[in-house]
Design a protein around this nucleic acid. Structure first.
Lengths: 213, 213
DNA sequence: GGTGCAATTTTGACACTGTCAAGATGCGTT
DNA sequence: AACGCATCTTGACAGTGTCAAAATTGCACC
């Protein structure tokens, strides 16, 4: 009966009211609540304690579903990679687009994705996650194919003569760097005018595409 | 005489032994000690308390020289901007270099600077500093001319026909994005092999320089 | 030389964080 | 019905940034 009292104290549970002492699907509820909290106040203001309270459980309950705070963040980042990977594959496999259109959509779509989900993108590429051994195996398993797919796309565009360069790996590293850098400068508030996103992306496209001259 | 006892407890003071109760130049000592600590254990592991202990003062002493932890970090970041700005100016004003050489040196030098001072670079562009109103006036005063100078350099290279694009602002935003992105991916450990730095930078140079054909 | 002021430093305290250990609770299986 | 195990809670600890009030000292002025 104790949980009922706790439920009265914090009725603002992201998920539906817990039907019993055991939550049922706390892991999912935590992920949802975490994303909500991050969207409200940013990553820096996310604490496991606030998160637990939001989910209507005690402080240490999350530790039975995530070994660590970092583990939770990696799980959210993994979701982001899945979404981005799916979107990139969709445009690349769209038969109604020319190679040039696909390339332009890759560049603009990448930056747009980061601009529309700044906190999630920050999580996906935050230094705390990738530096050293902080990344979960799940994150690696999801992120690596995403990186690989990027490499394949750019390599194919280069092979078809759409863009310049000679070494495919190096070229794709540069282009990835470009979109990543634009996204970062934008998210971090250094490119203050976020209305210019599309223009900057478009400029990048024209700079990389080889002129047919 | 209390300070003497304190001095015995933590003799590892970055600066020389404090000659009196008043430190003399605690602000400078704190900046030095902070950079040392960051170099040892990274930004995330820097706490004001450890820093104060390292400098041989009490926990709250730093608050009389920096209003905030963020204020301290901004001061370190400002130093980084000054160094980078100086280096960029030096190469740009070097009369023994051609425009193409200057451009290549700008790209490679930028990435090299970030790779050689990863923590400082992280500080200079960390989201916590630029997001919202977290940046000090001093930081703005130092960083803005640095950004401006970058814009001028790239604009001049574009005007001389060395690199493509039409809108100077957009072009320089893309190129800055490229070097920033490469640097970030490198620092955050996503481009694992740091021996490729120069190759990637060089590839970026060749991708941007207009072929004389 | 003594005195008072202002700069500097310290001690104490508070709220908050991540995380561990030990106990409580309830579901599923035997 | 009873046991085991996954799940959740309470209690606790070390660490963090930061504020308020007290202590210490250097310096200018009489």
């Amino acid at each position: 009966m104790r949980w009922y009292i706790a439920s009265m104290k914090s009725p603002d549970r992201t998920q539906t009211a817990r039907p019993s002492y055991h939550h049922g699907d706390l892991r999912q509820a935590l992920l949802l609540a975490a994303k909500a909290l991050i969207a409200e106040a940013g990553i820096d203001n996310l604490s496991l304690r606030k998160l637990a309270e939001r989910a209507g459980v005690s402080r240490t309950a999350p530790y039975h579903h995530f070994s660590d705070k970092n583990d939770l963040l990696c799980a959210i980042a993994a979701q982001g990679f899945r979404r981005r990977h799916q979107a990139a594959q969709d445009t690349f496999n769209d038969p109604s687009l020319t190679a040039a259109q696909k390339f332009a959509e890759y560049i603009c779509g990448y930056v747009r994705f980061a601009a529309e989900n700044p906190e999630e993108y920050e999580l996906m590429f935050g230094r705390n996650i990738w530096k050293q051994k902080h990344s979960t195996q799940e994150l690696l398993d999801v992120a690596y194919p995403c990186f690989q797919h990027q490499l394949e796309m750019i390599t194919s565009w280069q092979a078809s003569g759409l863009i310049g360069g000679d070494n495919p790996l190096r070229t794709s590293q540069v282009i990835w760097g470009t979109v990543h850098g634009i996204a970062k400068l934008l998210i971090d508030g250094i490119y203050t005018d976020s209305a210019q996103i599309e223009e900057v992306s478009q400029c990048a496209v024209t700079l990389f595409i080889k002129k047919a001259s």
